[in-house]
Design a protein around this nucleic acid. Structure first.
Length: 424
RNA sequence: GGAGAGAUGGCCGAGUGGUCGAAGGCGCUCGCCUGCUAAGCGAGUACACGGGGUAACCUGUGUCGCGGGUCCGAAUCCCGCUCUCUCCGCCA
């Protein structure tokens, strides 16, 4: 959520920056609401102050019964006025909140301005895309041939856009999760978290999924939501808290299943498991001061990259442009891994700096020094990595002419030394 | 699911209609004292939203789980809800 005060005081600048996300933005209604609210709050408060003074009259020594009646009448009238003003303030605040919660974050000055993914900027590349001397297969064909991915079974038990891992496929997923978590906890200084996969509404509002993107979420009963990413429960770990500055930065890494309805992506990536309703992911989340957030963001991207490097998977780092930026993000880098089967680069990680946007929604603050006023933290997160897509990348990059797939060296210890998934 | 208890400031814990943003203690911060990381003394120690001021700061209002009600006035009385804890049952 944006700072109302800032928006109102920099109306044109905010409108212009928001419009770089696409579509025009009219903030006049917001400003009007804010002005009305301020007037209403002022009159409500002064009416209350007056009521207080009148009420004190009852305690004065020697109040005559007549005086009491008089006081009673004036305070009653005041009270009725206050009730009306309170209702007005509540109504205005609800409407204001509604507008603010539906307003996306301001793109950072460093975010390239652009209309769509075509305008994203390649920041750097690592490795050389593999050139195979045989026709490359896509991951679903490889996976089904090897008997490690079963889309047919998934269709029966759940429906379209699900996958069942079997045998070495299931083990590969598990190995990747352990491998990633180990690297981030032992080499990069993250604390491992295993969060609930079902969260309450406040969490979803706090990180920005709600209220605007209900149609993307799996809603369970009791106003509970299946997490679309571990970012949601992990960021909300510190909701409504004032953290001690000495604790920052706080770095968490969490494994979770991620549930997404993928509404509006009909016809996209219909084959295979590039886009499924449930996938597993290792997610890094940081809470930092505003001063360090940029550097911490860059470091987090490097932490994600190190997984791809360890697995020797060629990739590139892309800076998302304003038009492609997520709702809550101010700045975002995507890591795109090269897939020989698809013959293209595909997103495998998305690393965002939300600055104080989520912190303001979720009220996550820190105290710079004892006695000082609390400030909002900056939140940063990124996949490290999406496991399903890592499996895809391994299958497509390490496929052999005979249909078998070799295991990246770094991963072998997690698979009992296994070097190859043989074609049966 | 059944029965009971509770929800007050960073923590513990008083408070049953006005003088309560809230006693007392602990913790913490600053200062004093003390010849040595202890004890003692003094002061301070929530958050939000308005108004004023360059600022330090001053000032109004609200907040004692949440929402509603009674009343001139509610932490205190009434109603509803939520959550937590204990016991029983069930259960990975």
């Amino acid at each position: 959520m944006l700072d109302l005060k800032y928006v109102v005081e920099h109306l044109d600048e905010v409108a212009e920056r928001l419009s770089t996300r696409g579509g025009r933005v009219d903030l006049e209604p917001l400003k009007e609401l804010a002005t009305h609210r301020r007037t209403a709050v002022t009159s409500r408060d002064s009416a209350r102050a007056e009521l207080k003074t009148v009420s004190d009259g009852f305690r004065q020594p020697g109040v005559t019964p007549e005086r009491r009646e008089e006081l009673r009448a004036t305070s009653k009238a005041l009270g009725e006025g206050i009730t009306l003003l309170e209702a007005e303030v509540t109504d205005l605040e609800t409407r204001l909140q509604d507008v603010l919660l539906n307003l996306p974050n301001l793109p950072n000055a460093a975010t390239p301005v652009g209309a769509s993914a075509d305008d994203n900027v390649i920041v750097r590349s690592w490795g050389t895309p593999r050139v195979l001397d045989f026709p490359a297969k896509e991951h679903w064909e490889l996976g089904e041939n090897l008997g490690i991915l079963d889309f047919e079974a998934a269709r029966k038990i759940s429906g379209a856009r699900f996958v069942v891992y079997r045998g070495l496929g299931a083990r590969l997923e598990r190995a990747l999760a352990s491998f990633m978590l180990d690297l981030h906890t032992t080499k990069h200084g993250y604390t491992e978290i295993l969060p609930p996969f079902l969260v309450n509404r406040d969490c979803m509002v706090g990180t920005g999924q709600l209220p605007k993107f209900v149609e993307e979420a799996y809603v369970a009963t009791d106003d509970m939501y299946l997490v679309p990413t571990a970012e949601v429960p992990v960021t909300n770990l510190h909701r409504e808290e004032i953290l001690d500055a000495s604790r920052l930065p706080i770095c968490y890494v969490a494994y979770s299943a991620c549930f997404r309805r993928e509404a509006g992506s009909h016809g996209k990536d219909v084959k295979g498991m590039t886009r499924v309703h449930q996938f597993q992911k290792v997610e890094m989340v940081k809470f930092t001061t505003p001063e360090t957030s940029e550097a911490e963001h860059e470091a987090l991207v490097c932490n994600a990259e190190s997984i791809l490097q360890a697995l020797e998977l060629p990739y590139r780092v892309v800076a998302l442009c304003s038009g492609d930026l997520g709702f809550s993000a101010s700045k975002c880098y995507d890591l795109e891994v090269h897939l020989p089967g698809q013959g293209s680069f595909r997103e495998i990680s998305s690393c965002s700096n939300f600055e104080d946007y989520q912190a303001r929604r979720a009220s996550i603050r820190y105290r710079p020094a004892p006695g000082e006023k609390p400030r909002f933290v900056h939140t940063i997160n990124g996949s490290g990595l999406a496991i399903g897509r890592t499996v895809i990348a391994i299958l497509e990059n390490y496929q052999q002419a005979d249909g078998s797939v070799t295991i990246p060296t770094a991963l072998r210890p997690y698979l009992g030394g296994l070097e190859i998934i043989p074609n049966p």
